[in-house]
Structure formats: structure tokens, C-alpha cells
Design a protein around this nucleic acid. Structure first.
Lengths: 196, 196
DNA sequence: GATTTTATGTAGTGCTCACTACATTAATAA
DNA sequence: TTATTAATGTAGTGAGCACTACATAAAATC
């Protein structure tokens, strides 16, 4: 007998939506929201469109599920990296390096799923990604403001801009060493600015 | 009698392709290559699709014409900014500030036409933009290498990444003061790195 | 003014997209 | 086993896309 792992409730399903989210996350991350069609997803999952729409409602609905899953598994753990017991500049530099590592074009060549999502053409998906990104930036801003209130806004903009650039360059072919060197150079600017 | 300004040769035309390129440049810059349809262009010009295709061959063909016009009119004048008689870090900082000014969301809210073009879904248009961008990066790299050969690669990557980030943030709503502050912070990192 | 050339307007091509109506099959409940 | 419920497969919908065939109108040439 084939066991059906992870049924969300008593209601049985023929395919596993959670596994579908993982597959979809890989597709979206590798090729971007716009470039992945619903047909691509249904083909990858071996299902037909009605099953897809019964489970997710729409392409943007699937993307929302992917973002939810991503925050729990693949997002940079800001709470761990932005520690109160290290200098702010050191913590931010570590964050940029971690971003470089995660954006580097490995097997799935992708940049940041969220930052790239904020640039897609579908309004619902774009706003969902933007909301997530704004939340992360607020977290960073609050962290900086606790010890450097006057510099919080511009330093947040700087690291956010650097991360957007790193994601774009990862997508356009920069490999890990190049991204890391860029992240470190950006990090060195922080130590100078925040040493007041 | 209505005078037909700027006919490219003895052959008369009912509409002016040069003016069409200017209009198309505004559309592409404001909304991005993918988001502008051929119908948008023909509507804006008051012409019909056959006239469009007789003049430009394809949507990517029009984009190539737009890029050509852009290099002659709207591109950052790297040759003027990257002067041999000022410190490299100062010149690069000036370039980043000029980028911030040009990317700032004015009436056409747009970032960099070329950097944004490198991210579009049409292969021909994307490669045309990438070629232009790679040329600019080579120019910057050569400028740096003349006086700081060991740092040329990583400093070029850093300024290119910063410019990509500035363009992305311009598109997502950062106004001129925010972009300028970010550019200046990035510029300060260069003075430190290149002061050896 | 007649003829040839060139540009235009009308109308449509085939394609891909996100999304769906409906009949059918499979799993559950009685 | 039978009745009910739920998920699936087949096959399509309409909309938007880049692009074009073809007949017509306007210039240019003679």
C-alpha cells in the first residue's frame, strides 16, 4: 500500500500540495515568476490544470504559498545574524556576505526569490514579495536604529540597495567569489560609516 | 504645407522614425521592455502595425534603435566623468552620484534603461542591452586598472553592483535624496579601498 | 495625366497565457 | 455492494501577444 504522507486534514488528496510548493519554489527561484507558466508547474508535478487550481486558486496564490514556505526555510535568518552583542557594522557585513552566498548561482542560478519577485509583472505576486521585502528592511532598520538612530535610514537603504544589486548580478552570471568580494567591499564601507 | 523634418534619405515617409524612437525610448524607460507592447507603441505614434514593421522590423529591432539613440543622448558620459586628472575614487564616486540623479524617479520613473533591459524576457533585446552594459563595465575597469590594477576587477564589480541596485531601488520608489545618500555611502567605500 | 512605386488601413494569423466547464474516475460512507 | 463525495482528465475559453497578407491610397516618376 502506498502511504500518502502529509495529508493536511482528513480529506485525502491524490497529490501533495506541500511537495508541489517545494517544486514550484525551485522553478520560481531558477527562472523568475514571469518566466514560469502554470503549464510548466503542472508538467513538473505531473498533474493537470484543474488539480492545480483546486489546490492553489491561481498562479499568484501558489506564489504566496511559496513565499510562506520560503520564509520558514530559505530566508536569511536575520534574527540570528543581526545580534545585539556584536558591532552593528560587523553584523551587517555578515548579512551581506550571507546574502552573497545564498544568491550565488549554484545549481539553480537565482539571486533572491523575494527581491526578484518584487520586479515581476503580476500585481498580486509583486505586492506579496514587496510586503515581505519591506518587512525585512524594517527589521534591519530597527536593528540599526537601536544603536545608530541617525544613520539608520541611509544605512538601511545602502544595504538594501547592495542586496538588490547582488541579486541582479547573481542572475547575470557573477559567481560566488565575485559576489563575496563585492559584499565585503560594501561591508567595509559600513565599518567606516558606523564607527562614529 | 506641412514640412517633413528629418527624412533620413531621399525616400519620403509619412511618419518620422526618429521621432518614433524618442517616443519608444520614453515608453521603454518608464515601463520596461516586457511591459510595453507593440500595440502600445503604435497607439502612441498613431500608426498601424504594418508601418511599424516596415520601419523597424520587430519589437527588438526598435529596441536596438532606442539603445543606439540612448548611447548618444541619455547615457552617463563616462568619458567626461572618469577623468585621468582626478583620483580614481573621486571620479567613481561622481559616477555613482550621477547615476543616482539619472535613475531617480522623475516624470518617467525609471532606473537605467540598459540595466533594466538586461533583465527582460526577449533574448535579442536582452543580449543587446547586456552587450552595451558589458562595454560600459569594460570602460570602467580599464579606467581603474590604469592606476589600481590589482583592485580593478573587484572595484568594477562593486560599482556595477551598486548601479544595478540603484536602478532597482529607483524603480521600486526610492526618490532622489535616498538614491543620492546611498550613492555617496558607496562612494565613501571606494575612497577607503583605493587609498593604498 | 498615366504608371510605377511606396506607405498605409483593414483585418486577421498562429501562438501562449491564465484559467475553467464538464464528464469520469477513484476513494469514502452507508 | 451501493450511494455519495471528491479529485481528476479531456478539452476548451477568451484575452493578449508579436507579427503579416492583402487591398487601397498616396507619392514620385515619366
Amino acid at each position: 500500500m502506498t502511504t500518502n504522507k502529509s495529508r493536511s486534514r482528513g480529506r485525502p488528496r491524490r497529490f501533495d500540495p506541500d511537495a508541489a510548493v517545494v517544486t514550484a519554489q525551485q522553478l520560481f527561484h531558477a527562472r523568475g515568476y514571469d518566466a514560469v507558466s502554470v503549464a510548466d508547474v503542472t508538467d513538473a508535478l505531473g498533474i493537470n490544470p484543474p488539480s492545480f487550481y483546486a489546490a492553489f486558486g491561481s498562479k499568484a496564490g501558489l506564489y504566496q504559498r511559496v513565499l510562506d514556505h520560503w520564509t520558514g526555510t530559505a530566508a536569511i535568518p536575520l534574527g540570528d545574524i543581526l545580534r545585539p552583542d556584536v558591532p552593528v557594522a560587523v553584523a551587517l557585513a555578515a548579512m551581506l556576505e550571507e546574502a552573497a552566498r545564498r544568491y550565488a548561482s549554484g545549481p539553480a542560478a537565482g539571486g533572491c526569490l523575494v527581491l526578484e519577485g518584487t520586479r515581476c509583472s503580476d500585481e498580486d505576486a509583486r505586492e506579496a514579495a514587496r510586503a515581505l521585502n519591506l518587512g525585512a528592511e524594517s527589521f534591519i532598520r530597527d536593528y540599526i536604529a537601536a544603536r545608530h538612530p541617525d544613520a539608520a535610514n541611509e544605512v538601511t537603504d545602502f544595504v538594501a540597495t547592495t542586496m538588490s544589486g547582488l541579486s541582479a548580478k547573481a542572475r547575470s552570471g557573477h559567481d560566488l567569489p565575485r559576489l563575496l568580494a563585492t559584499a565585503r567591499l560594501a561591508g567595509s564601507a559600513l565599518e567606516k560609516t558606523l564607527s562614529a
